[in-house]
Structure formats: structure tokens, C-alpha cells
Amino acid sequence: MRNHLPQLRQQHQLSQAALANAAGVSRQTIISIEKDRFDPSLPLAFRLASIFDCTIEDIFTPES
């Protein structure tokens, strides 16, 4: 999947570490998600959407 996490993070002035802390995952997980190398689990996707106050579809889009 593709994602808009880097843009959202910069928009909300959050560092990778801060976002990882808020989402309850490691910083490496956030890095891997942003580089499209790791797809988050559904609960994690919901938490990320909650942090940015948007829907999951606003953050993640299928590659096709």
C-alpha cells in the first residue's frame, strides 16, 4: 500500500519518534511504513487515523 504518512506527519509537526510513541509502536515501524516496506495492522491503522483525526483511506491507498 501507498501512504501519506510523511506528509501528514509534517503537516501536524510530529517527529517519527513522537508518532511512534503516540501509536504505541517502534520508530522503525513508522519508518518502514513510510517507505512502503511494511503494511500496518488494522488496529495500528485505526490508531494512526485517530491521531491525525482522519479516516484510514486518507492515509493509506492501495497500490493499484
Partner: peptide, 12 residues
């Protein structure tokens, strides 16, 4: 410790 270790890339 991380609250959700099973959701991390390290677990994969």
C-alpha cells in the same frame, strides 16, 4: 517496552 510488540515491523 512497546505497548503493541506484535504490530511492529521487528516482529515481522
Amino acid at each position: 517496552t512497546i505497548p503493541h510488540p506484535e504490530e511492529n515491523v521487528e516482529d515481522t
